[in-house]
Simulated scan of single mutants.
Amino acid sequence: MQIREIHSLYFSPTGGTAKYAKAMAEGAAEALACPAEISSFTLPREREEGRHFSSDELLIIGSPTYAGKLPNKILPEFQEKLRGEHTPVLLFVTYGNRNFDNSLAELLSVLRGNGFLPLAAAAFACRHAFSDRICPERPRAEELTAARSFAARAAEALKTAERAALEAVSLAFTVPGDAGAPYYVPKGEDGAPAKFLKAKPLTDLSKCLHCGACAANCPMGSIDSSDTSKVPGICIKCQACVRGCKQGAKYFEDAAFLSHVRMLEENFAAPEKENLYFSVF
């Protein structure tokens, strides 16, 4: 099967998913000896236009896991903006050491329904967006090397595969999880559900330089660029504003949210989960 171009696309508010997307693109590009375009699907302007991929292109696509599935406010963008034409795809998710639950199955279902041929998939444990105590150094160099090798092996197999055979095995390809399952319900330290859907970041004005980086980095475009202490739009708790503020001016103080973070730190800081790989090859 001839592949003329590789596209690596990612939703990555805090950067971990982007690192894996780049590593996988490099591995596939080396194996197929063809160019790879690496692009973000994170910011509102990056999701404005639909993206169509042909049968002689390879798509690599990744997303973080939010509450055990794809980010619910971004899911419609995946469903509506991505279209394949029997396009082979390597898909992956990242997760903050608790569990990827049903996110990989949901991504596979979306892609298959949009004309793609899922052929290989992975789930990568990554630094948790909420806490530096959970997988603080991941992805490490050796894990990016493993991801690169995984993509290279899958891409190499494409070169000698017949399209009819690929389409047949792709239809039968499965990954762990249930695409239709409900979202994971976050829990607090007491084990009860932690309800923080309305929580939004606050601003320490004694530290804020009004540089606008938080507004520019928000994947929902929800922070007021003229007054970044205001968040009139939806907050998906991705931590892009918190992680991206060099002055440490952005923070959360919602009690339920902080209780959930402490629960995660107590139960999932160690041992670190292994990365998992699935392939038709």
Rank of each mutant, 00 (worst) to 15 (best):
A199L: 12
F124R: 09
S109K: 15
I236D: 12
T65Y: 01
P186W: 09
G233C: 05
Q79W: 00
E265R: 11
L75Y: 02
P88G: 09
A172I: 11
A240K: 03
N97F: 09
N114K: 12
T228E: 13
G15C: 08
C208N: 12
L144C: 06
L111V: 07
S131M: 01
H260P: 02
I61W: 01
E77M: 03
E80Y: 03
A154C: 08
R243L: 07
I236L: 05
E49T: 13
D190M: 10
A18H: 09
E156S: 13
L104A: 10
F257A: 03
F92N: 00
K230Q: 07
D224I: 03
V280A: 13
G191A: 06
K207R: 15
Y184Q: 06
F281K: 04
F173S: 02
G248Q: 12
E265H: 05
V93W: 07
L117N: 05
R163W: 13
G50M: 12
C238E: 00
A152R: 11
V110F: 05
R262H: 10
A216I: 03
A29H: 01
A25Y: 05
S54A: 14
G177D: 05
G221E: 06
A105P: 00
K230V: 11
L32H: 02
A28S: 04
R138K: 13
C214D: 08
Q247R: 13
M24P: 04
I61V: 15
S39W: 05
A29T: 11
C135W: 00
Q239T: 06
F196T: 00
F11C: 03
E77K: 13
T160G: 01
N102I: 04
A157W: 14
R83Y: 10
L202D: 07
V185K: 11
L90W: 03
R51T: 09
A105N: 06
F92A: 00
P182Q: 02
A157G: 15
F116H: 11
G62T: 00
H7L: 08
K159A: 14
K19L: 14
T160N: 05
Q2K: 13
A192G: 04
L91F: 10
P193L: 13
E162D: 14
G27Q: 06
P13D: 12
P176Q: 10
F11N: 02
A155H: 06
A215G: 03
L82I: 03
L166C: 01
S226D: 10
Y66N: 06
E30K: 15
L107V: 07
S131G: 09
A25P: 06
E49Y: 08
L82Y: 09
G115M: 08
R51G: 06
A152L: 07
A255K: 14
T228W: 04
H86F: 04
L107Y: 09
G16I: 09
G15A: 11
K195L: 02
F92G: 02
F268M: 04
C214W: 02
E274C: 01
E80C: 06
A165E: 11
S170R: 12
N102K: 10
C126W: 03
A181K: 13
K250R: 15
H260I: 01
P76Y: 11
L43R: 14
F278A: 05
A129D: 00
E57Q: 15
A256M: 10
F92Q: 07
L158I: 01
K19P: 06
A121V: 00
Y20R: 01
E272W: 13
S170L: 07
K198Q: 12
A216K: 15
A105Q: 01
L197F: 14
F281W: 11
A256T: 00
G27E: 12
G113W: 03
N72Y: 15
